[in-house]
């Protein structure tokens, strides 16, 4: 491959004037500009219907109670409590924690049958007894086609992995045997991926620092 001259690079990066280039580099610069000109002439504009197609979806979303709930959840709120009510609320939370403690380890021995989020960790679960491998991919790995592999620790076809995801809405799918992309059958929500398939939706709530 022909290496690009340093001065030509400077010019093409906008750090050098054309007049400062020697004659041979001026020719190279003009050659590259012809490539850019050819590319620019392939420039297209948006189809006329695009605006209305987007607005149609936006109007539906604007009416979506789910989106309003999500907005309410992620918008910071100021909570004003009297000392008496505050004390009562703290006592209530403590009571609930104490009551829940004996049950906290109960499910540890059993794998959940659906994808769940506990604290910062999301456990992805996909049941596929006949699969040779299962992976999960999504926006959190830039839709890496290899995804993140799940493990079938008991050989029972229950594939799991745990990931720590950032708060927000995530879209994901499972990849069966490296080829077949499937949405999560247990996800509470699915969205059209715009290409005739569906992605599963996962909501990770904002964590308190």
């Amino acid at each position: 491959m022909n290496r690009e001259h340093e001065d030509l690079s400077r010019y093409l990066n906008g750090e050098y004037g054309f007049e400062q280039l020697p004659a041979d580099l001026k020719r190279d610069a003009q050659d590259f500009e012809r490539i850019v000109t050819a590319l620019k002439r392939e420039r297209i504009t948006a189809p006329g219907a695009l605006r209305e197609r987007v607005m149609k979806q936006v109007r539906v979303l604007a009416k979506s109670p789910w989106l309003r709930v999500w907005d309410w959840v992620v918008t910071p709120k100021t909570l004003r409590l009297s000392p008496a009510a505050g004390t009562l609320a703290v006592a209530l939370v403590l009571a609930l924690v104490v009551l829940a403690l004996p049950f906290s380890g109960r499910g540890a021995a059993d794998l959940p049958s659906a994808t769940t989020t506990t604290g910062a960790v999301t456990r992805f679960v996909f049941v596929a007894p006949s699969a040779g491998s299962v992976a999960v991919t999504g926006d959190f790995v830039d839709w890496d086609p290899n995804g993140i592999q799940l493990e079938d620790r008991r050989g029972a076809g229950v594939w799991t992995t745990e990931l720590e995801l950032s708060p927000g809405v995530h879209h994901y799918v499972f990849i069966i045997d490296g080829t077949e992309w499937r949405p999560d059958p247990n996800a509470t929500s699915q969205v059209d991926d715009g290409f005739g398939q569906h992605n599963s939706v996962l909501l990770i709530p904002t964590r308190k620092s």
Binding site: L39, E42, R43, I44, T45, A46, P47, L50, R53, V54, Q57, V58, L61, L67, V169, D193, G194, F195
Partner: peptide, 28 residues
């Protein structure tokens, strides 16, 4: 955005779909 997406993926129809989806994601 459609011009940019077309340069990136090399298909006019897909570029329009990608931009449509992106606007909806941006709204959300």
């Amino acid at each position: 955005l459609v011009a940019y997406a077309n340069y990136m993926i090399g298909s006019a129809d897909d570029a329009a779909d990608v931009v449509q989806d992106s606007f909806v994601r941006a709204y959300k």
